[in-house]
Design a protein around this nucleic acid. Structure first.
Lengths: 238, 238, 238, 238
DNA sequence: TATGAATGAGAATTCATTCAT
DNA sequence: GATGAATGAATTCTCATTCAT
């Protein structure tokens, strides 16, 4: 593990080369094989690590799911560690891309805040594998993330969005002035994350399916109320 | 793994029965040793699984930390699965015991609610291993917990306490009437859990140490406000 | 490789526990199994490494030759490195034991010198595996030997013997006074070592079997002359 | 390994033919590149095999050091075996070339003998990789050398030179008559070879750096005395 | 002449577990 | 109640090599 190795293929995202003047119809040339193989492995690994964690993740299952060989895993990613890191980076990159695409109502900070919450929570609900990956990475004390080198690139604009939104609301006298955006983000995230990340133990203990859509929707409605009420102006002295 | 085996020794907590009125008496020699060994293994395993997860947990490290042998691990717990289950049960039992001991102000529901939140959050802060164990168990879709058989016995009174507290507040016209205690519990728990369970990735991404005591305290103050504001009567229509 | 591991069994030589009053007839008790297994592996490894070097040595062949399993190799020696180190230490220990047992004529330094040469040369001829092991260890720049920790214990009295012998001869006026014992030892050793260590390439190139007993004996006779002539008094000015 | 394959390009030395009378001319482009690549690979392989032996030698390291690819290694040399053989042949060819160039004083056999020794010993000192290669080839029982086919071509005139020199000295009554040139050559070679080939273990055991220039020079002086004394006439009966 | 992708076979090492006493 | 010896079956990773272009 962790030995430095020369690794072929592109490290970045798959070739989304602009089609250019020759039109969009270029056939999948041979070269794509490499990237396709690499991508299949990466995807299979994401599933495997999400399902079994890092230590529990098995190379042969990844290879099988990717319709490739264990050998290719090492060819493209060098080590199990390297593969996990690539999966993790991919997961963060996807989140960042989603964050960049969020649409918040610029004219209604209160509405925008709810949209923000909904985006965060829905992302968790739609990406259970991401939650699992984060848990695994935290088990590792974020060592892969810290080693990544691409960290800057991977961090999304989410806190910035929230800051902006809060500033807007404050400027309009709608929101109170003493809210820390980072802490608020953590609170919002926690409200959505925990219910899903711990759904199995919670379901076992509380006797209620935590991921069931209607219950989840009801919960989100209340959680959004909690957040909205908290930021509302005129409630500072509580 | 997983094979059921007949295993000697008690499965429950070690006999730490207070000697009581019969005096200090000579300690039962042999039995004592056995239970001491078993307890050391259990503790060592709790540390190991918290640090490395289930799949990443190593029998030899557990044995070494317990100043015992791998052989003894199997002697007492039958399998790695069995050992993990025992650790998990122990963790839940400890939580339950703590929950049973919570003191909430019976005359001031608002204060009681804050005490409740503080208890939950502090428990997480004081038991990082418990968080890790829960994450691992959720990775396993709670299969150990569900298989446990002792589940009833392990579930603490925490939701009951919250329900009671809410009912008190409602009766006094302090709290709104439409709060679901389970969802509120999940929200409270999430507010405290996520920040700590994901502290390493959050710290890496947000550039702020999420477990640092002062920051944590400030966060808890705000989170408590969020919860208090949410349950307060007269805010239903929001 | 090289990870520290707890390794069972004695690290030293096999139990040559003095029989004591109960007589020498103690039957091979169970306990001996471990040492017997360990010894078989060690011997098999010595053969394997001598035949194929370290990198070319195969664990499965060692296991097969030892009538054991690869697993046991790791049980007893922790790693391939550890096994090689044990083999090397064993080889040096055997040499040291042989050196301790050399008999040199105390009354005839000239004769003693020839006995000394003969001992060294014969040891090489009788232990081709030792030569191969030394070559392998030199390929590794003696890293195992230096890491050994038991180095003092492993170095034999051979240079001391030669020094003594030279001193005796000088005291009697038989040997010249300016001979460096270490350099002389290296010269003597080289005279015997090279012919055997390089016998295959030499045989191929020179067209004569370098290890053939009669040719070897003739060579030794001449080499002994060379050494004797060199140390003889009255030849200093050459 | 070992499979015979049809391989392009010359097996012998790269075309370093002096341009001669036909002038400097424009260098043949393509061919030049190919041979340069081949030569770089060969050199890199020599270093790699000298450093790690045959089994320990790694194709990727060779490729990297040669600023080429593993693929090219196979393109030019067909197999690891083939590559090693080429390296070995190159090493012997270089030795032969050096031997052909030795200058021995034709008028002073005693001096010539010392020159001979010095040449042999210095060659070892200047070519530690050659020593390592020989050791590796002896580990393989000289199978590559024997299979080479170019063996005649590769054997240098060194024993012939020594024979001639001895005959000269005998003719002049300076040297004794019963010296076997092959055995003497082996003795001389051994005196120089062993100290360097085993320098690491010797240094570890004897506590003195065997390759340190001054110590080495002193040793050579004494070793030359040993050889000179041995061949001198009038000492036959010893 | 060159190269990137791919690979089967095997290597070292580890893991959870059991046997015999 | 305890232990040292043993092990089958993985598991990660490497190696020399070949394919297709």
């Amino acid at each position: 593990m962790s030995r430095e190795r020369i690794v072929p293929g592109t490290t970045g995202r798959a070739a989304t080369a602009p089609a250019g003047p020759e039109g969009p119809a270029s056939p999948p040339r041979r070269r794509r094989d490499a990237e396709a193989t690499r991508a299949r492995i990466l995807k299979a690994a994401a599933v495997e690590f999400a399902q079994h964690g890092f230590a529990g993740g098995r190379g042969d299952r990844i290879a099988r799911r990717a319709r490739s060989s264990e050998r290719m895993v090492y060819y493209y990613f060098g080590s199990k560690d390297g593969l996990f890191r690539a999966v993790l980076e991919g997961a963060y990159a996807s989140l960042r891309d989603a964050e960049r695409a969020v649409q918040l109502d610029p004219d209604d900070p209160a509405r925008a805040l709810e949209q923000f919450c909904r985006f965060v929570w829905r992302y968790y609900a739609d990406h259970p594998g991401f939650i699992s990956l984060l848990n695994t990475e935290n088990l590792h004390r974020a060592r892969n993330l810290r080693k990544s080198g691409r960290l800057d690139e991977l961090v999304g604009p989410v806190v910035g969005l929230l800051s902006q939104l809060l500033a807007d609301g404050q400027a309009r006298g709608l929101f109170r002035a003493d809210v820390d955006p980072v802490d608020l983000y953590v609170a919002i995230a926690g409200l959505g994350y925990f219910r899903l990340s711990n759904r199995h133990t919670l379901s076992a203990v509380l006797g209620r399916d935590m991921a069931e859509p209607e219950g989840l929707e009801r919960y989100w409605v209340e959680a959004a109320r909690m957040v909205s009420g908290y930021v509302r102006a005129g409630r500072d002295r509580l």
